Simulated scan of single mutants.
Amino acid sequence: MEFSANNTVVKLCIQGMHLEDTGHVEEALTLFLKAWEEATDDAEKFTSAHHIARRQTKLEDKLKWLNTGLQLAQKINDDVVKPALPLIYVQLAQCYKELGEMDNAEKYDKLAKQLPDAPSTKELFFHGTRADLQIGDLLTAGGKSNYEADLVMNHIYFTALIHGAGLAAALAKGEGEERVYIVEPTGDFEDDPNVTNKKFAGNPTRSYRSQKPLKVLGEIKNWARITAEERNKWQERLDNNQGEIIN
């Protein structure tokens, strides 16, 4: 499943999270369960299982859904779900501690402390911007944030999703043309902590960051650009976002 706000399961989970924010937790769980019923693949099932597990009040039920999510994550075994494994292990360890099953608690505590695998370098990566760049140019950290005024970024950000890079280009500061470039990391990189395991488990937006430059390999000319109305809605969400950027 390529993450999209138009995906049926994603839409149901987003609606459920909105209900949670307003205190309607039972109605939220109903939507999460509906998402599970409508899931058509393991990735969609993983997404819904994560939210169902969060809303369980009985330890046994929580364990059931956490283990379901873990089994799905291990089956999928890609860079979307791997970042969620430490989170799942911590939650499993806590459940087993509360049940007094200390051997299992210790097992998952140890797993949670193991460093996750580094993201794959075998796929194409993209960067969205309004800058006019050439093949071979280097994108470096130190620019101002698109999302918080006067914040100088310590990392350069990129994604494995073209539409994600396109959104970044649409929201980028400046008056230049929206551009999406194919880029190559020149050093180590990590999952973007600003989105990983936040609203959704893992890194479904396949967003990454690096302190090392990105090398421009080419430009994507055709992608699904968002409308002016959609851009305004995204900008409004960003303006209303009270979360702190992890820099």
Rank of each mutant, 00 (worst) to 15 (best):
I226R: 09
T140S: 13
K212A: 14
A170T: 08
F3Y: 10
K34T: 14
I52N: 03
Q114D: 10
L33R: 12
M153S: 06
Y96M: 04
L111K: 13
P185G: 04
L31T: 07
Q242S: 14
L171I: 06
Q242T: 15
G23M: 03
F189L: 06
K221S: 14
D188M: 11
E26K: 11
K64T: 13
H24S: 13
L111Y: 05
E175N: 14
Q15T: 12
D79P: 08
L139M: 07
L70H: 00
I182N: 02
K11G: 02
L99Y: 02
N197K: 04
L29V: 09
K34C: 09
L171Q: 11
S145W: 07
L151Y: 05
R130S: 08
K113V: 06
R55D: 12
A84N: 10
D21M: 08
L99W: 05
G100S: 02
L139V: 08
G187R: 07
I14N: 11
A160S: 13
W36T: 15
E44Y: 07
C13N: 09
K122H: 11
E26H: 06
L85W: 04
L171G: 07
L214Y: 01
K64Q: 12
F126Y: 14
N146V: 10
K62M: 10
G142M: 03
T22D: 05
L171W: 02
V195I: 15
G69W: 05
R206V: 12
I245H: 01
F32P: 05
T140P: 01
E44R: 04
N240T: 09
Y108K: 06
R206F: 03
N146G: 09
I220L: 11
A84K: 07
D109K: 15
T57M: 13
R225H: 13
Q235F: 09
D103V: 14
C95Y: 00
K62Y: 01
P83M: 06
N67P: 00
T121G: 09
Q114V: 13
F3E: 00
G69M: 15
S145I: 06
Y89K: 05
E38S: 05
R206M: 12
T22M: 08
Q74D: 12
L12F: 01
G164V: 03
R209L: 10
R54I: 13
K199C: 10
A28E: 02
D192A: 00
N240W: 02
W234E: 15
L66A: 03
L70V: 02
F200V: 11
E38A: 08
L171V: 12
K212E: 15
H127D: 03
T196W: 00
Q134A: 15
L87D: 15
G69S: 13
E178G: 11
P213N: 05
E244R: 15
Q74V: 12
L138M: 12
S145D: 06
D21W: 01
I156A: 01
I245A: 06
L214G: 00
Q74S: 08
E60A: 12
I226M: 11
Q15G: 05
P193Q: 07
A93S: 11
